[in-house]
Design a protein around this nucleic acid. Sequence first.
DNA 1: GCAGTTCATATAGCGTTGCTATAGGTGCTA
DNA 2: TAGCACCTATAGCAACGCTATATGAACTGC
Lengths: 241, 241
Amino acid sequence: MSFEGQPPAKMRLLRAAAELLANSAGAPVSTRQITQLAGVSAPTLYHHFGDKEGLFDAVVSAGFEEYVAGERDFAPSGQPLEDIRRMWDNHVQFGLNQPELYLVMFGNIRPESRPAIVADAEALMEEMLNKAAAAGQLSVQPREAARSILAANVGVTLMLIAEPVVDRNLDLSTMTRDAMIYAVSSDQAEQNGSGDSGRSSVVVAAIALNAALQASHSDQLSSSELKLFLEWLHRISTSPT
Amino acid sequence: MSFEGQPPAKMRLLRAAAELLANSAGAPVSTRQITQLAGVSAPTLYHHFGDKEGLFDAVVSAGFEEYVAGERDFAPSGQPLEDIRRMWDNHVQFGLNQPELYLVMFGNIRPESRPAIVADAEALMEEMLNKAAAAGQLSVQPREAARSILAANVGVTLMLIAEPVVDRNLDLSTMTRDAMIYAVSSDQAEQNGSGDSGRSSVVVAAIALNAALQASHSDQLSSSELKLFLEWLHRISTSPT
DNA sequence: GCAGTTCATATAGCGTTGCTATAGGTGCTA
DNA sequence: TAGCACCTATAGCAACGCTATATGAACTGC
C-alpha cells in the first residue's frame, strides 16, 4: 500500500494506521497507537482526517484503489466471464490478505456512512459485465448482475474471514462464484473455468444432463443409444475428482 | 424478543440491551446506558455476561432462536426448493427488521469470536437442503450448497442494510436467491420465474457438458467412445426447441 | 525586508468508555 | 442459627476519542 504524494505527517499517519490495522488481529486499533507509531500528536490526526473513521476511510480507499488498479491491469482475456471469475477471486484474496481492512469496508456498512467504495466496486464489476453483455453472454441486466454477484462475493469473503485459517476452504468461493456466473450468463456452455475446476464442472454438467434427460423423454436418441449414453454419463459423473 | 425464565436482573439487562440496540441507529451502545435502563449497576452486567460482547451475544442468540423457531414453524410445502426460498426471504427480512442485531451477528464476525450462530444457520439451511437432495433436486452436496447459499444470503442482506431505506430494492435479493438455487438444483426445469431461457434444460445441460468435456480432457471414456458420445451430445444440443 | 495570513503541529486535558477490586446484602440448607 | 452460595452495589482505574488553545514555519503582498 503506497501513500506517495501526501504531506509527510499525513502520509506517516496513513502508513501507521495501515500497518497497525493489518497486524491487529481483530483487536481495536486506537488513535494513540497510530499517532505514536507515526511520531505525531493527536490533533494532527484530526486536522488531516477529521476523525478516526476518516483516517480509516482514507486507508481503505488507498488499499482499494490499489486493488482496483491491479484489477484493471489484467489484460482482458477475451472471455469476459473468465475475467469476472478472476475478479471474484481477486476480491476474495484481497479480503483474506487484509481482513481488518476488509471488515471496515464491508463488515460495518450502514446507510448513513456507506463508503463510496461499495459503489466503486459495483461499477467495476458492472464494467466487466458490460463486456459480457456485449458478447451476448449475459441473460440479465449488467447492473443487476453486478450488484448480485458483488453481494455474493462479499458474503463469501466474510464467511471465509470468519473461519479459522486452518479450515478455510476456498471451494466455498469457487462454487458460489460459478453458481452466480452460471445463473447470470445466457450461454451456459461458457461455464467451467480453466484449470482445476474443469473436471468437477464436467461432473456437474453430467449430473444436470442426466437429470434433464430423465425428465424430458427426449427422442433424439434411440432407446439403445440412450441406454449406452446414460451409462457413459454415469461413468463420467462418478469419476474421481 | 422474549427473555422469560431468566433471573430478574439478567433478564432486564437483556431487554435493555435489545431495546437500545434496536433503536441505536448505528450509534454505539454503552454499558452505562444499558445498566441504567435496566436499573442495575455495572458489575451485575459483568457477573452475568462476562463482558459487553457476552451480553450482545446473548441478545443475538435470543433473537436468532426466535427467528429459527419461526423458520421451523413453516409447514413444509412439499417443495423443498420453495421452502428454501422462503427461508432466504425470512433471513433477509430478519436482517432488515433488526439491522443492528444483524450487523453484530454477521457484520463483525472474526475467527476468534465466531458466533455459533453462523454454524446454526448453516445447519438449518443444510437440513432443508437435505430434503431437496432426497427428492433428487440437488446437484451438489447439501452441506456445500448450504454454506454457499447462506454466504450469498448474508452478502445480499448486508448490501440491503447498507442501502438507504428509500431505494432498497428487494429485487437484488430475489435475483440472487433464484440464481443460487438455480445453480445448485439439478432439475433446472423446475425453476419458476425467469424460465425465459427459451432452450430446454436438456439442451442447456448438453451444451454445458459438451464444453466441459472439451476443456477437461477427461479420460473416463476411450477416444472412440468419446467420439460417439460427443456426436450424440451434439444431436441433443441441436434438437429443435 | 517585513506584517499578515494560512497551514501544520504540539501541550494539556475533558468527558466517556469498558471493566474490576472490594464488600455488603439475601436466601437457601444444615 | 450458622454457614454458604449467589447476586448486587460503591467507587474508581486505565484507556479511549476528541478538542480548546497555542506555537512555529512557510508563503503572500507591498
